[in-house]
Design a protein around this nucleic acid. Structure first.
Lengths: 262, 262
DNA sequence: TAGTTCGTTCGAAATAGTCGAACGACCGAA
DNA sequence: TTCGGTCGTTCGACTATTTCGAACGAACTA
């Protein structure tokens, strides 16, 4: 084995980690062949082969057109994971409602391992078309350049935020992305005071968003509710004010519904 | 090892198969502890432990309240899997539309390994509330007792259907479920003639549904589009006729859109 | 037809997984 | 408080498993 064998923390099963890398490679490339995977993961063809076959036997991959792709089984597992989240269960109807009323893209985001995960989103009537919808839902995002992410960060203890920034950094996405640690902490302060996070074209040029945290009775943050709209729309102070009030109200209703259920 | 070591067909990685069983157990129980998993899978505590830890390290499980649960990562992978399906991409807007117009539950289903997978569904205005929605989306269903499933089976070659029936059987779900092989083949014939499948309370008592296959230019079936409604509603011949025409029309539009894209 | 590339199979070398015992932490009962 | 039970966790040793590379036929290209 190569020199730099890093300690993965606890003892782990290398074969399982390898399988996980296989799954990741299949997702990234949208399907792989045996030789291709062997090259990408730097293992022998026979190893790549047996991994793919094993995952296929277990229903996690399927062969389509001579390539191995992710099985729909993942969509079953994904639904299972989502549905355990009260934020998803109680938030989904509110997202539908908000998207309907505002006509804009509306999302629910939660945090996992320091990244934002888009649990659900709806494109409202006036929402711009394109690959935006499917692209976002497939993606784990950094938390510092989205309104949803910043809303979550603002509700997390300071040292947790520091930990996340250490781990994932603050890469720029547009010219407006916050890439400085101190600026970020100041921004989070502002968000706490104001009650909502504002994304000023920090992720996508021409797009702004408003994000509001959703908390449980113990004040742990479960995630956030957000609405994004063209910069043009958001530049109108009044519209923005109205919209933020609206999102805060919905987030609050979600919180109440979650609290009543437990 | 125990006596009955069956040949899994091709050579496979036992550690990966074990990991897959772990994931399945976690899903089934909605979260597990170390000892609990060890008992369920009949392995030592230390083995259960290292498997859970490895999957956690790889972002596939998370610890919540002293239990290991499925990570939202699965929801990312699931979206990825779904979005590769043209049936999903082109069918989703039509499902939304149909649910809106009919006010009933509307779904898109596809087949994988002889089972039906619910790719997307929407509860229309008049759709009954309850756990039905989330329950269905989490589930792989047998194909023989749903309208969507029968529509798919009717579009598959006869020997493929036989294979599926051999593998998964024809378990009864209600008194109306088709449990006899010959009856099923006759029904599939009827479906082909009629152009749509009808579920007459075969899955859930009080619920009927209409399912229509969606095929690609090569005449392979990609899945089906279906609408379910209370038995009361469906007993009205005229309503049923109108609805089936409507579903067939939408399915056809989906087909056309898919074909134009390739 | 010769030269690639692909996926697939196999035996043997080398690595990695499993077990069971043992520990400290935690919880509830006595 | 103290005891017995359970929990998750760690470790070394035995053993089973994974990995590799070579070799094959099929499919495709030149």
């Amino acid at each position: 084995m190569s020199a730099g064998d890093r300690d993965d923390g606890p003892r782990t099963l290398k074969t399982v980690t390898m399988a996980s890398r296989v799954i990741d490679a299949v997702r990234e490339r949208g399907g792989v062949g045996v030789s291709e995977l062997a090259t990408q993961l730097e293992v022998s063809k026979s190893t790549a082969y047996i991994h793919l076959k094993t995952l296929e036997e277990n229903g996690l991959l399927v062969q389509r057109d001579d390539r191995y792709e992710l099985a729909f089984e993942f969509s079953v597992l994904g639904e299972s994971a989502r549905n355990r989240s009260p934020l998803y269960r109680y938030g989904k109807p509110k997202v539908d409602e908000l998207a309907d009323e505002t006509g804009q893209y509306t999302h629910i985001v939660t945090e996992e391992n320091g990244r934002g995960i888009n649990l659900y989103q709806v494109k409202g009537e006036t929402g711009v078309d394109g690959d935006y919808q499917s692209a976002k839902l497939q993606q784990r995002d950094h938390l510092h350049y989205t309104a949803s992410g910043k809303a979550i960060l603002a509700s997390l203890p300071r040292d947790r935020v520091a930990e996340i920034v250490d781990r994932h950094g603050l890469p720029a996405q547009t010219a407006n992305t916050i890439t400085d640690r101190e600026t970020l902490f100041d921004e989070l302060e502002t968000i706490r005071d104001r009650g909502y996070a504002y994304n000023d074209e920090e992720e996508i040029e021409g797009f702004c968003a408003i994000g509001v945290p959703v908390r449980n009775p113990d004040d742990d943050v479960l995630g956030s509710l957000s609405v994004s709209a063209p910069a043009q729309f958001m530049r109108d102070e009044q519209a923005r004010e109205r919209l933020s009030e609206r999102v805060m109200r919905s987030a609050n209703v979600i919180e109440v519904n979650i609290n009543m259920s437990s």
